[in-house]
Simulated assay, not measured.
Amino acid sequence: MNKFKLSRSGPYLVMAPGMILLLLFAIYPTIFLFKISFQEYSPISIEKPFVGLSNYIQVFQDQSFWNSLKITIIFVLSTVSLEFFIGLFLSIVLHQLGKGQKIFQSLILLPIAMAPTIVGLMFRFMMNDQYGVFNYFAESLGFSRISWLSDPQLALPALILTDVWQWTPFMMIILLAGLKGIPSDPYEAAKIDGATASQTFFYVTIPLLSKIIYIALLLRTIDAFRIYDTIYMMTKGGPINVTSTLSWIVYDKGFKFLDFGYGAALSVVMLILVVTLLMLFLRKVDLFNVEGKS
């Protein structure tokens, strides 16, 4: 009898440490975030009065919020689109390779092994208008020096380029795994029917790869939405706020100006936007319906 009880409680005992850590480092901070978003919360003030929805009203009246939302949307759409198409191309090329696939795959995956802060610092040096390698090649080709990170028209594209360089391999490896999981039977049937390479790609490969594509796009969209490290190392939200994304203004308002209540309200709004995007995506695409249409 004791052994039976022990066996039934065993899974809960195994899960307990992880659940405790989840409670301490995820659930409690989220509850605390919601709590202080309704307060005028500052670490330099003893009193933290309840202010109701005033922080949220201030968010939607703040022009910097709408500007950051626009910049975030541009950044996410640009990076995820470029990473998907380049990653798809690389995954197809690697899938066709025989010898040397492992070597090329390892080399291409190097950027995602680096911390975003290191990547941001590296690209900041390479894009320096005085001694950066980008300007060295520009001058070698006969162009004048370019202020990559101080020009309002180039700062955001420079960030997009940096993100694409680092995270395209992530998209590639997911799509490559999906390609390797496609059985050979549909391709043999398409070949017998006389389908061309482009017809096989659009009518066989893409439909069979659609679930993997959706998952890759979802993961990268959520991750790109909360970019912060690279911005901190490269532009710090400038010049003139053209790279100030939602994550950056949360830091700027909450930690730089010590307005934790307003920063928490911004974080909650950002969380709601991401969760809404996730729910719309999952409603549109049934990722768990394996037997459904691809």
Rank of each mutant, 00 (worst) to 15 (best):
I213F: 11
G178E: 08
M19Y: 13
Y131C: 07
A265M: 07
L141C: 12
T243M: 12
K5V: 14
Q39A: 01
D185P: 04
T230Y: 02
F257Y: 12
F201Q: 05
S267H: 05
L21Q: 10
P239A: 08
I103L: 06
I182W: 02
L159P: 00
L258V: 14
F25G: 06
A16C: 05
I57L: 13
E47D: 08
Q39L: 09
P207A: 15
F143G: 05
I92Q: 15
F143P: 00
Y232N: 04
G18I: 07
I74Q: 04
F65G: 02
V119L: 03
I20T: 11
M233H: 05
F123T: 09
H95F: 15
V59C: 06
V274T: 01
S247W: 07
W167T: 11
S150L: 11
T196M: 04
P169S: 07
M114L: 08
K293S: 13
Q96N: 15
A16E: 13
K293Y: 11
G181N: 08
I227E: 03
S9A: 14
N128C: 12
L21E: 09
P11Y: 11
I27S: 02
T221L: 08
I46W: 14
I112A: 06
T117A: 04
F281E: 10
L280A: 12
I71R: 02
T230I: 02
G181I: 06
A115N: 02
L53T: 08
V268R: 04
D129V: 11
K191Y: 12
A190W: 04
S150Y: 06
K191A: 15
L282N: 14
F38S: 11
R8N: 10
L156V: 00
L90A: 11
S81G: 03
F134Q: 10
T168Q: 09
P183A: 01
S68C: 05
L77K: 07
Y251L: 09
S37N: 03
Q101F: 13
Y28F: 07
V290T: 13
A195E: 10
I31V: 15
F34I: 06
P17W: 12
T221S: 14
T230A: 00
Q61V: 01
M127G: 13
L179N: 07
G292S: 15
I112Y: 15
I108W: 01
A138T: 11
I231H: 05
P17S: 05
P157T: 02
I86E: 05
L282G: 14
F255P: 08
N67I: 11
Y131P: 08
G181D: 01
S64E: 09
Y251T: 01
M279I: 15
A115Q: 03
P11R: 00
L176S: 05
Q61I: 00
I212P: 00
L107C: 12
V204I: 10
G10H: 14
W148T: 08
I160C: 02
Q39I: 07
L154M: 15
S247T: 00
N241V: 10
F65W: 10
L217H: 07
P239G: 05
V275F: 14
I212W: 06
L121W: 07
P186Y: 00
F34M: 06
S140D: 11
L22H: 09
K70Y: 07
